[in-house]
């Protein structure tokens, strides 16, 4: 009997305790409730949930807060589809804002079939580590090909091709700039897709000396600068630099006489690269042998 009473007392006590604490919590929930704009939740639902940071905010929810406070335009999110961005804008009754699609572009075309390797790199398999040690490539400025960018990309937009160069899938790229930050050679940059004229090289060397290391290097011969409309292309430190302020002047004229094909015309959609007719043809499909 006493045992039963003990159990009953314990049950009652625990039940009472649970009930009173629950009541306290329920009261606190009412009393301390934080009024939040319900639109934040709604807008967050319409955002892509990728938390990539391309908009400049730490994540999608804080971007939703910024949107609701009308401190930014929905077009700043580069990940969302056009329709979803439109629906966010309609829901909030604001302008979509600029939705100029940007993509990451690599300023190097020196795959293993055109760029010479002088040594075999044996250290840690990461570009940043190879950059600390020097890497094995003849060209000091070129892509190290150890795929730090591929690893850093959350959207599977970068894949290494068989020549050890990263290829950006423009349809998947959302311009989050993770690859820009991960590249120790600063070869990636975010470019609007309207920038079709592109110098795929960062070498600051001149003439035959750098061409001995890579067949598609910019040798600073200045032909593109001469052929292009005034002021569009300048040679700075032995490298052709395109002034994208004057992008509407850009045409395929500039690439025609490039002897190495370092300056290229990118077709819209990102599926093909057009080289000038003067560029030497690369038909080799296997990696080059290593030179001592």
């Amino acid at each position: 009997m006493t045992a039963l009473a003990g159990i009953a007392t314990a049950g009652l006590f625990m039940g009472g305790l649970g009930f009173s604490l629950a009541a306290l919590l329920a009261y606190a929930n009412r009393k301390l409730y934080v009024e939040e704009d319900p639109r934040i939740d709604a807008v967050e639902e319409m955002l892509p949930h990728s938390n990539c940071g391309a908009c400049g905010e730490p994540g999608c929810r804080s971007f939703a807060e910024v949107l609701v406070n009308k401190e930014a335009e929905p077009g700043k999110c580069t990940v969302n589809t056009v329709e979803m961005t439109q629906s966010v804008a309609d829901y909030l009754g604001v302008d979509v804002g600029d939705h100029d699609k940007q993509v990451a572009r690599l300023a190097c075309a020196g795959g293993s079939h055109v760029a010479y390797f002088r040594a075999k790199y044996e250290g840690l398999k990461s570009c940043r580590a190879a950059a600390v040690a020097g890497g094995g490539k003849g060209c000091t400025w070129g892509c190290l090909g150890l795929a730090d960018c591929e690893t850093s990309c959350d959207f599977d937009a970068i894949q290494m091709n068989k020549f050890g160069l990263p290829v950006v899938n423009e349809n998947l790229c959302v311009a989050c700039s993770d690859c820009v930050d991960s590249c120790p050679k600063d070869l990636f940059s975010l470019q609007p897709v309207s920038h079709q004229l592109w110098v795929a090289c960062k070498s600051l060397g001149f003439g035959d000396e750098v061409e001995a290391d890579c067949e598609v290097v910019c040798t600073a011969c200045e032909r593109c600068a001469v052929d292009a409309p005034e002021g569009l292309i300048k040679i700075r430190n032995n490298l052709a630099i395109i002034d994208y302020e004057k992008n509407e002047l850009a045409s395929k004229v500039a690439i025609e006489r490039c002897p190495t094909g370092a300056i290229v015309w990118l077709k819209k959609g990102g599926d093909s690269i057009i080289k000038g007719t003067g560029a030497k043809k690369v038909i080799r499909m296997e990696p080059l042998p290593r030179v001592a």
Binding site: G123, L124, S126, R128, A129, A131, V132, A133
Partner: peptide, 13 residues
Amino acid sequence: IPLVQSFRVAKAV
């Protein structure tokens, strides 16, 4: 394990 190389990377980063 190439420990020192990874430390040098860490210092650089």
